[in-house]
Amino acid sequence: MSPASERNAGDEGPGAGAGQVDAALAARARLERLLAAPTPFRADTGEADPAVTAVLESTDRPRHEYLDAVWRAVTASRVIVPVIAHAPPGAHAVRLGASDAVPSMPRARGREVRPDDAARDATAPALSLPDGHVGLPVFTSAAAMAAWRSDVRPVPVEPVRAARVACAATDQLWVLDPGTHDLRLPRPAVLALAEGESWVPSWRNGPVQAEVAAQLGEVPGVTGVAFAPGEEAELRVFVRIASGGGMPAVAAALEACQHIMVDPAWGDFIDTVELCPLPA
């Protein structure tokens, strides 16, 4: 340790450690109040809703139908959010106080969540996803949560509250039952729930498809647009491009279509998209 570091450490004084302990104890007390607050789930046993379990096990469905059915079942039940009183240094954390119930939700695309002061309030650990986004872990049962981490406590909440927490403090994403199902639920679905709206997947959302078709139809060389559920993505967009102008014209049209579809504004309505060019 350098002399300057020694001086800085010494400036904290003998009361610094006691202050940290007091902060940790206060955080635990706030957590206890949170868990003891009136809730429609006071008698919740932590078991999974049989209807949700049945849908999660129906993995023989096409991917788009599976996600749609899982979302409808989960939002008709309750979810469990894991809570810790003190987040480890450097860990992602989500404040889980009363401020999560805000009337208008922020659009915080790409926001990285880090705790400012993890001892100030009860927090829910957030997940860092492989694509760089941060999501809120939500569980269908206390057993699924315990299989993921043993150092957290289950708090059953209404799905809309969990959606508001995710929208306020993560990249507006849920990961359902990490460690077992590891199911990433679509961002537009979480956003719609937080705002009190119904989620209509883009593969069956007529107004969204009409707007996409209108914008792509303005690209020179595009002669038709069609839609289908994606195999890996939520939505597959077929774009028919005239080949009469040669490969340079086709490449320019395809580049323009890609530029339109990467507009972040689509993120509120389309989770992921596959763009499939077709020759005219």
Rank of each mutant, 00 (worst) to 15 (best):
P82G: 13
L191Y: 04
W174I: 10
G90T: 09
P207A: 13
E12L: 12
P188I: 06
T272E: 15
A265C: 04
R149A: 14
D116E: 09
R204Y: 01
R95S: 11
A214F: 11
S58N: 14
L235C: 07
V94I: 14
D131Q: 04
L176E: 04
A126D: 15
M247C: 04
R204T: 03
A228N: 08
W199I: 03
A228Y: 03
T272H: 15
D182Y: 12
A144G: 11
R120T: 10
V225T: 07
T272F: 00
W148H: 14
F269Q: 12
G17Q: 02
E255F: 08
A168K: 09
A189H: 03
E158Q: 14
T45S: 15
A16I: 03
P229G: 13
A210H: 09
E218K: 10
T223C: 07
V237P: 05
D263A: 08
A98M: 03
T123S: 08
E158Y: 02
S141R: 12
R78L: 15
L191M: 13
G110R: 12
R161D: 13
T39P: 02
P125K: 11
Q209P: 04
P220D: 10
G245R: 08
P186I: 15
V175Y: 08
D49R: 07
G97H: 01
P137W: 05
D116F: 04
R61I: 00
L136S: 14
R153Q: 07
E32V: 11
A228L: 06
R120Q: 09
I80V: 15
G13A: 03
P115I: 03
R30S: 13
R109H: 08
R236Y: 01
I84N: 12
V262W: 01
S77L: 08
A214P: 01
A98G: 09
R111E: 09
F41E: 01
G110W: 15
A73K: 02
Q172H: 12
G267V: 06
L173I: 14
L34A: 03
P88N: 11
R153Y: 02
G244P: 06
R164H: 12
A166P: 09
A168W: 00
A256T: 11
P115R: 09
W203T: 00
L275F: 06
R95Q: 10
A146G: 10
